[in-house]
Simulated scan of single mutants.
Amino acid sequence: MTGFAFAELTSPQVGELLTAARRPVLLLPVGSVEPHGPHGPLRTDELISTGVCERAARRLAGDPELRVLVLPALAYGVTRYSAAFPGAVSISEDTLCGLVTDVCQSLVDGGFRHIVVVNNHLEPEHVAAIRRAVAAAGVGYLDILRRANAERLTEEFRSASCHGGRYETSLVLADRPDLVDTGVMARLPEVHVDMAAEIRAGRTDFVAMGMDRAYCGAPAEATPDEGQSTFDKLTEMLVEVIREVAGRR
Score class of each variant (00 low, 15 high):
A5G: 05
A7D: 15
A7F: 10
E8F: 10
L9Y: 04
P12L: 10
V14N: 02
E16C: 02
A20G: 12
R23G: 01
V25G: 03
L26E: 06
L26H: 05
L27C: 12
L27R: 05
L27E: 02
L28H: 02
V30P: 00
G31D: 02
P41R: 07
L42H: 03
T44Q: 11
I48H: 03
S49L: 06
G51R: 02
V52M: 06
C53R: 06
A57H: 11
R59P: 02
L60W: 02
G62P: 12
P64M: 08
R67W: 01
V70Q: 04
L74D: 01
V78H: 02
S82W: 07
S82K: 07
A83Y: 12
V89I: 14
I91S: 04
D94K: 12
G98E: 07
D102V: 05
C104E: 00
Q105C: 07
S106R: 13
S106P: 00
V108F: 01
V108S: 10
V118L: 09
N119C: 13
E123P: 00
A128I: 04
R131C: 04
R132F: 05
A133P: 01
V134C: 08
V139Q: 10
G140Y: 03
G140C: 07
D143A: 08
L145F: 07
R146W: 07
A148E: 15
E151G: 07
F157W: 06
S159L: 08
A160I: 00
C162L: 04
C162H: 15
H163C: 09
E168K: 06
L171N: 04
V172F: 08
L173D: 01
L173C: 11
L173I: 10
D175F: 11
L179M: 14
V180T: 06
D181C: 11
V184T: 15
V184D: 04
A186P: 03
E190K: 09
A197F: 00
R200F: 00
G202Q: 11
T204Q: 08
T204M: 10
D205H: 13
A208T: 11
M209W: 05
G210W: 10
P219D: 06
D225S: 12
T230R: 00
E240I: 04
V241C: 02
V241Y: 01
E244H: 14
V245H: 04
G247W: 13
